[in-house]
């Protein structure tokens, strides 16, 4: 277990380093001089020089990279050029919307997908299976932002059950949850469809294994075999997808925030792009990538708790 954990940790650290190098290279090297890029064509030489000074651009590349990484490690992401506030504060505010949204969506996706997948696998080849599979086909084909518009049209504008957009903050948690509900549903449904399909096929594959026949020969009914033997073995592919979905949900959240005018990371990053605020873009991208890598690591840990073959390799 320790060996496995150590190996995964090393891989986590390595991924972070390489990812940060890539982001740094794209943002700091590719556009030429970041300072003149940020200020646009009309800026005077003095303003550019001043900004270069403030950004520390006069230092050597490796030094700049180390400063950037060291800063992030201590929670200092630099100053936003347009907002004139520390990027860390901006990001923290926005994460308070984006992270709950992604988790809310993930929870909904799991709550929808598991019963659907189990039902389809248990009734494979029959009407209930066909119905679930048909529904998931449509679910996968839905662009979440369009689905979001339809939700707004019906549940917010027509029936007025949920707000059509905006976010009141977390001072009233219930209002916060209400504001995030339609966005979360829009995000969750297409992901739930994928998850249900993966769960179904993993279960069916597992149900064909020899040890399932052994379990049946012991006197377990089909339902008992499904819950006690098949489900746990089917969790490995499901977890893999779940981990990947978290990154899709984060990315999807960026788009959905635009439909609902939510003040999350997505809105922040698009504003930063139009205002050429590279410091914000760089930091937010790094945070998104960090989240994805971290989730991959957590999924690896989950594998080990589920699968004794990984645990005991120590």
């Amino acid at each position: 277990m320790l060996r496995y954990l150590l190996g995964r940790l090393v891989s986590l650290a390595l991924s972070l380093v390489v990812a940060s190098l890539v982001i740094f290279a794209v943002i700091e090297i590719v556009p030429g001089d970041p300072a003149s890029y940020m200020l646009g064509l009309n800026a005077s030489a003095e303003t550019v020089a001043a900004l270069r000074e403030r950004l520390g651009l006069n230092e050597a590349l490796p030094i700049r990279y180390i400063h950037w990484v060291a800063g992030m490690a201590t929670g200092d992401f630099g100053q936003s050029y347009t907002y004139k506030v520390p990027v860390a504060d901006l990001v923290a505010q926005r994460l308070a919307v984006s992270l709950p949204l992604a988790l809310y969506a993930l929870l909904l996706a799991v709550l929808i997908a598991f019963p659907a997948g189990l039902l389809a696998a248990a009734r494979r080849g029959r009407a209930a299976d066909a119905a679930v599979m048909g529904a998931t086909q449509v679910g996968i084909a839905l662009p979440n932002f369009w689905f979001a518009m339809l939700l707004v049209l019906t549940f917010a504008l027509h029936w007025q059950l949920f707000p059509a957009g905006g976010f009141p903050g977390w001072s009233d948690p219930l209002a916060g949850v209400r504001a995030l509900t339609l966005p979360a549903v829009a995000l969750a449904l297409p992901q739930a469809a994928i998850l249900a399909r993966v769960l179904r096929s993993a279960l069916i594959e597992t149900l064909g294994q020899d040890y399932i026949r052994t379990a049946r020969a012991k006197g377990l009914t089909e339902g008992q075999t499904m819950l006690r033997h098949a489900l746990r073995n089917a969790m490995i592919p499901v977890l893999t997808i779940l981990g990947m979905q978290f990154s899709f949900l984060l990315a999807g959240a960026i788009i959905i925030e635009n439909v609902f005018y939510l003040p999350g990371l997505g809105r922040l990053i698009f504003q930063a792009i139009t205002q050429r605020d590279l410091i914000v873009v760089e930091s937010v991208v790094m945070i998104l990538v960090f989240a994805v890598i971290l989730v991959t690591f957590l999924v690896d840990l989950a594998y080990a708790t589920i699968d004794p073959r990984l645990r005991k390799r120590a």
Binding site: S11, S15, V18, A19, V22, I23, V26, I27, V30, P31, M244, S247, F248, L250, A251, G252, I254, I255, I269, A272, I273, L278, V281, V285, L288, V289, V292, I293, T296
Partner: peptide, 18 residues
């Protein structure tokens, strides 16, 4: 694995930003 850590939207954001 590393490329997988950059969802296509994030890659698009990076490319667009530049």
């Amino acid at each position: 694995d590393l490329v997988f850590a950059f969802p296509s939207l994030v890659i698009a954001i990076l490319i667009t930003a530049v």
